[in-house]
Amino acid sequence: MRFDQHTVVLLARPSHPPELPQDAIDRLQDAHLAHQAGLVEQGLVLATGPFLDTDDDQLRGFVVLSIAPEEARDLYANDPAVRAGRLDVRVMSWMVPEGNVRFEGVPIPRSMLEAAAGD
């Protein structure tokens, strides 16, 4: 059997994130979303989104990329929320039977305001 290999990034809240005022957290979230959208526009991200209703309140989001794990680590080291210590990055390879998972190119929000516009 053949397999497709993807790189997966789990975004997690650190045990002790820095305390910031809400407006700074909002700006960091917008910068994080813009960073994600830029990676999508470059064709590097195949799928991404936040987790909801999880038993692990540290897990925040999931990203599937078309690049090697080392490259993903480098890209996410530059994510503004990671640099600010508000998110940690866990990178791994994910293998699925060839053709088992397909991804469609869809735009993602570049800010919280844009994300809310879809409600």
Rank of each mutant, 00 (worst) to 15 (best):
L10G: 13
L11F: 03
L11T: 07
L11A: 02
A12D: 13
A12G: 12
P14W: 05
S15Q: 14
S15D: 13
S15C: 13
S15P: 15
S15R: 14
H16D: 15
P17L: 14
P18H: 04
P18V: 04
E19S: 15
L20T: 08
P21V: 09
P21T: 04
Q22I: 06
D23S: 15
A24H: 11
I25E: 08
D26L: 15
R27Q: 05
Q29Y: 10
D30Q: 07
D30C: 09
A31E: 06
A31C: 06
H32I: 02
L33V: 06
A34D: 03
H35I: 02
H35N: 01
G38R: 01
G38L: 05
G38N: 00
V40N: 10
E41K: 10
G43S: 10
G43H: 10
G43K: 02
G43A: 10
V45G: 04
V45A: 04
A47F: 11
A47E: 08
A47T: 11
G49W: 07
P50N: 03
F51Y: 10
D55L: 12
D55Y: 09
D57N: 00
Q58A: 07
L59R: 00
R60E: 11
R60N: 11
R60L: 06
R60C: 05
R60Y: 05
G61R: 03
G61C: 01
G61I: 00
F62Y: 14
F62N: 09
F62W: 14
V63S: 03
V63A: 01
V64N: 04
V64I: 11
L65I: 01
L65S: 04
S66M: 09
S66H: 08
I67S: 09
I67H: 06
I67P: 08
A68G: 09
E70N: 10
E70M: 07
E71A: 14
A72C: 03
A72T: 02
R73K: 09
R73M: 06
R73H: 05
D74K: 07
D74I: 12
D74F: 09
L75C: 08
Y76V: 01
A77T: 02
D79G: 01
D79Y: 03
P80K: 01
P80E: 00
A81T: 07
V82Q: 04
R83K: 08
R83I: 05
A84G: 05
R86I: 12
R86E: 10
L87H: 01
L87A: 02
L87P: 04
D88N: 14
D88K: 07
D88I: 07
V89A: 00
R90C: 10
R90I: 15
V91P: 08
V91F: 00
S93Q: 14
V96Y: 09
V96K: 13
V96F: 12
E98W: 02
E98V: 00
N100I: 03
V101H: 07
V101N: 09
R102L: 02
F103W: 05
E104M: 13
E104S: 14
G105K: 08
V106R: 15
P107C: 00
P107Q: 03
P107M: 01
P107Y: 02
I108S: 12
I108G: 12
I108Q: 11
P109D: 06
R110I: 00
S111M: 04
L113V: 14
L113K: 15
E114F: 06
E114G: 02
A115K: 14
A116D: 14
A117E: 10
G118M: 13
D119W: 08
